[in-house]
């Protein structure tokens, strides 16, 4: 299926970003996206005419949560050097990512999944609830708690205000 491969080539980086928000580790993110794409392959004729990104992000979130319920089966390659903080005192992407990863790691996994779908995948509350098999009220409370946790994180608070000042 050439159109599946073409889609994967184009969508890979954005799906990887979504998966990183769940796993806060690039290699686990890669493992998660590969798993989801392999599952999506057989359903591609049905997926392709809708909103494939949204469908796959929902699969990323639900697969991630089911992995957690069972166990992480991932295999981590190691030849990638750990990311190093950028120099020069400026808060670059790597440092920002480290801070965000720490903050995300402190969130319960369902809150992390809700956060990814709502604020990265642009899902509505109803769509998020459907994707994760939750009630809309639960999605609302997860969203509100996750936002509060990020807002009260001392290191992220400065970043949030920095972003607001742009």
């Amino acid at each position: 299926m050439e159109d599946f491969e073409a889609y994967v080539s184009a969508a890979w980086p954005r799906l990887l970003r979504s998966a990183w928000l769940l796993t806060h580790d690039w290699h686990r993110a890669e493992d998660l996206v590969q798993t989801v794409l392999a599952r999506a392959y057989g359903r591609w004729p049905r997926i392709k005419d809708g909103a494939p990104d949204a469908y796959l992000r929902a699969m990323l979130a639900s697969t991630y949560l089911s992995w957690w319920r069972r166990r992480w089966r991932g295999e981590l390659p190691t030849e990638q050097l750990p990311e190093q903080p950028a120099g020069g005192g400026e808060l670059e992407g790597v440092e920002l990512r480290h801070l965000l990863a720490d903050a995300l790691a402190r969130l319960p996994r369902q809150q992390r999944a809700v956060l990814m779908l709502r604020f990265h995948g642009d899902f509505t509350e109803a769509d998020t609830a459907r994707a994760l098999g939750l009630r809309i009220g639960t999605v609302k409370s997860h969203t509100s708690r996750a936002l509060a946790a990020l807002r009260h994180d001392p290191q992220l608070r400065a970043l949030l205000s920095e972003g607001a000042g742009r």
Binding site: Q80, L96, F119, H120, G163
Partner: peptide
Amino acid sequence: EQVIDLLDRATASVP
């Protein structure tokens, strides 16, 4: 909006 901005900035560069 701040969170959306933060998530976008943090994941802007993929290795």
